[in-house]
């Protein structure tokens, strides 16, 4: 384990004095072997996107933090099972999706309260114009919401979305079209 870590650090500092980052797949392999530093590096690299993903999914800053933490704990537990011969991103996002799904499923439905009763720290999604779309997205069926978040928010390619969701590219496209159609209807109904 020590030798792995040393190798990783050597590789990381090989040229550029620590500025060069190991690719996620390599970090995942090291972390799977029990290297905490590699795992920390992995978390640092992904925390923003994971938090953003969780936020789009649960639409609450505090809960997003819970979900993010749960996703990373789940990742830590499962890294050993990760097969480095396969691409990391679809595997990871599939895992993240499952954690989100379980979180939402076991969440006790809370009565909708006044919009500003939650976090006082200013919700960027409450900007006019943006909030309608964000709200509509949050209410979308998850079969449609997930590919939209993965493709547009996380900038994943259709191929990657398909791998993550275990669907064909054509199926992902059709779900995204239907999801966008529902969003369009919801938005135009609200506007009209």
């Amino acid at each position: 384990m020590v030798s792995l870590r040393a190798a990783a650090l050597r590789a990381a500092r090989g040229d550029g004095g620590g500025a060069v980052r190991l690719p996620p797949i390599e970090l995942a392999r090291l972390a799977g072997g029990g290297d905490r530093e590699a795992f920390e590096e992995l978390v640092r690299g992904y925390q923003r996107r994971v938090y953003g993903f969780a936020y789009q999914y649960v639409r609450d800053a505090g809960e997003a933090q819970d979900v993010t933490q749960e996703i990373f704990v789940h990742l830590y537990r499962n890294l050993r099972r990760y097969d480095a011969a396969r691409p990391f991103e679809p595997w990871f996002w599939r895992l993240a999706t499952n954690v989100c799904l379980n979180y939402v499923r076991r969440r006790v439905p809370e009565p909708r309260e006044l919009p500003d009763s939650g976090d006082a720290g200013g919700d960027p999604a409450d900007l006019p114009g943006e909030s309608a779309l964000a709200r509509a997205l949050g209410e979308l069926d998850r079969a449609y919401r997930l590919p939209l978040i993965l493709h547009y928010h996380l900038d994943m390619s259709l191929q990657q979305v398909a791998q993550t969701m275990g669907l064909s590219v054509a199926a992902v496209k059709s779900r995204m079209h239907r999801g966008r159609a529902v969003l369009r209807r919801t938005l135009s109904e609200e506007a009209g």
Binding site: Y51, G52, Q65, Q69, Y152
Partner: peptide, 19 residues
């Protein structure tokens, strides 16, 4: 507009709490 949807910055204590 979907691409432009923003999420708040992850809180600074996220990494320590995850670790």
């Amino acid at each position: 507009r979907l691409r432009a949807l923003t999420a708040p910055e992850p809180p600074s204590d996220l990494l320590p709490s995850v670790m």
